[in-house]
Simulated assay, not measured.
Amino acid sequence: MSSLLSPAPRRETLGANVLFQIKELLLTGQLLPGEQLSLRSTAEALGVSVMPVREAVYQLVADQALEVAPNRSVRVPLMSAGQFQEITQIRLQIEGYAVEQAAQHSPPELIAALRRLNDQLSLAMEAAGENKAAVVLLNKELHFLVYAAAGMPMLVKMIESLWLKIGPVLNYDLRAGSERTRKKIAVEHHARMIAALERGDARLAREALHSDIESAFKHILAKQFSS
């Protein structure tokens, strides 16, 4: 995990940067369910003392994005199929609302930026090798660029909170290079959503987002939670 972190730039407060980097690992599924987070190793990777790492980690514990195990180690929580389904249902409502609002605030430069990201996502899905970290990062960047366009910062924070909880399983198919990735299913849904945003069609934009979320949900439920 420490190889995914980079030293904190001094122009930012250490605490804010440490929190940001650990959040990114969770949001993009680079930390797996049940994986332990070493405070000392994380501090060394970031080039900071253990104190700001401890503060960031325990803030995430309070947000239920991380948990303290019985042996006092800090780890990514495991998620049941029921919890995954519940969070997905909440995401459909909240993220769907954000997309509807974004449809009213989608200038040409936003549409162009979204199309660039989706094109980059498509190319990343074609890249050789099993490491699909770029796919996961681009997918997250595209989604949150849309949500930010809603112009509702508190709504974006709510969405981030959901992604922090679900991130370790949310990107299962993207990270693993599944059939959905090879067929670029997410790229197709994104293209439909972007086209609807360009036309200011809130209903179709929401439907495209729902298709994206639901197709990933069904795939992950079958692959990760089937017994």
Rank of each mutant, 00 (worst) to 15 (best):
S3Y: 09
S3E: 15
L4P: 04
L4N: 08
L5A: 03
P7C: 01
A8M: 05
R10E: 09
Q21P: 05
L26W: 04
L27P: 01
G29D: 07
L31H: 01
G34L: 10
E35I: 07
L37K: 00
S38N: 07
R40P: 14
A43T: 08
E44K: 06
A45D: 05
A45G: 07
G47P: 06
G47W: 03
V48T: 10
M51N: 14
M51A: 14
M51T: 15
R54V: 06
R54F: 06
E55T: 12
Q59K: 11
L60Q: 04
L60K: 02
V61F: 12
Q64L: 14
A65C: 10
L66F: 13
A69L: 14
V74R: 00
V76G: 01
P77G: 06
L78H: 12
M79T: 07
S80M: 09
S80I: 09
Q83D: 12
Q83R: 10
Q85H: 13
Q89H: 13
R91W: 05
E95P: 02
Y97Q: 08
A98F: 02
V99Q: 00
E100W: 02
E100C: 10
E100H: 05
A102N: 08
Q104M: 13
H105C: 10
S106W: 01
A112E: 15
L114P: 01
R116Q: 14
N118S: 06
N118L: 03
N118P: 03
Q120E: 14
S122Q: 09
G129L: 08
E130N: 09
N131Y: 09
N131K: 12
K132G: 00
A134W: 01
V135W: 00
L137P: 00
K140W: 10
K140G: 07
K140R: 12
E141T: 13
H143N: 09
H143R: 08
H143V: 10
H143A: 08
F144T: 03
F144G: 04
V146R: 00
Y147S: 04
A148Q: 15
A149S: 12
A150S: 12
A150G: 13
G151E: 15
G151A: 14
M152H: 12
M154V: 09
L155T: 02
V156C: 10
M158H: 06
M158Q: 10
S161Q: 11
S161I: 08
S161E: 09
W163A: 10
K165H: 13
P168E: 00
L170F: 14
L170Y: 08
Y172Q: 04
Y172D: 01
L174M: 15
A176K: 06
E179C: 08
R180N: 11
R180Q: 11
T181M: 09
T181D: 08
K183N: 13
K183T: 15
K183F: 11
V187E: 02
E188V: 15
H190E: 07
H190V: 02
H190A: 09
R192Y: 06
R192I: 05
A196K: 02
E198R: 10
R199M: 13
G200A: 12
D201A: 10
D201L: 07
A202Q: 06
R203E: 13
R203T: 14
E207I: 04
L209Q: 04
H210E: 08
E214G: 04
S215K: 03
F217V: 01
F217M: 03
F217A: 01
K218P: 03
H219K: 05
H219E: 03
I220Y: 00
I220V: 11
L221Y: 01
S226E: 12
S226W: 09
S226A: 15
